[in-house]
């Protein structure tokens, strides 16, 4: 067993544990902390794939910014009550069957997959190559992203500001 396989399994287990805890914890804020572990483990998996820029983005955007926006989203709601333990219903059994079928499907699909020669020079200047591609071949998607971000920003401001005026009126 190589170190890469060990690293992958440790990170995968951390990611899955984070997801399981996210579903099973009863306190919402603890759930977000469990989600951070999943995000960080996925960043580690990106590093084992020599995709360091993506790993840095994963840490910066997901475990930094998205977690903060989730926490603030939770803070906006009433979150002092904890979720109740559920009984096993027929829908749970159905979901378990679905998960089992998905596992078998994925297992056989991955087993039968043939991997061509793995790339050997992924780690050479990967951020630079992303930059070169992004600002020559993929310029229009890049500019569209700025429009998307602007729309998100202005939309959020309009929604939140309308709430403020309604509070002032009565």
């Amino acid at each position: 067993m190589t170190g890469e396989v060990i690293a992958f399994f440790v990170l995968a287990i951390v990611a899955i544990m984070g997801g399981m805890l996210l579903l099973h914890l009863s306190n919402v804020v603890h759930m977000v902390v469990a989600l951070v572990f999943t995000f960080l483990a996925i960043a580690g998996i990106f590093i084992t794939l020599s995709a360091e820029f993506v790993a840095a983005v994963q840490v910066l955007i997901y475990s930094g910014a998205v977690t903060i926006i989730m926490l603030f989203g939770i803070m906006l709601t009433r979150h002092d009550d904890v979720s109740e333990k559920k009984q096993i219903k027929s829908s749970t059994l159905l979901a378990a069957g679905g998960v089992g079928a998905f596992f078998l499907l994925m297992f056989f699909a991955i087993n039968g997959m043939s991997v061509s020669e793995p790339a050997t020079n992924l780690h050479v200047d990967n951020t630079k190559r992303i930059g070169e591609l992004l600002y020559t071949n993929y310029l229009i998607p890049f500019e569209l992203i700025s429009v998307l971000l602007l729309a998100a920003l202005i939309g959020a401001i309009i929604l939140a500001k309308r709430d403020d005026k309604q509070e002032e009126k009565p």
């Binding site: 910014a65 998205v66 926006i69 603030f72 803070m75 906006l76 009433r78 979150h79 998100a152 939140a160």
Partner: peptide, 17 residues
């Protein structure tokens, strides 16, 4: 852990963007 004002959410959103 009290309920926050919407105002703080906007700061978080600005941060993300």
């Amino acid at each position: 852990w009290i309920q926050f004002n919407v105002r703080y959410y906007l700061f978080a959103l600005l941060f993300v963007i």
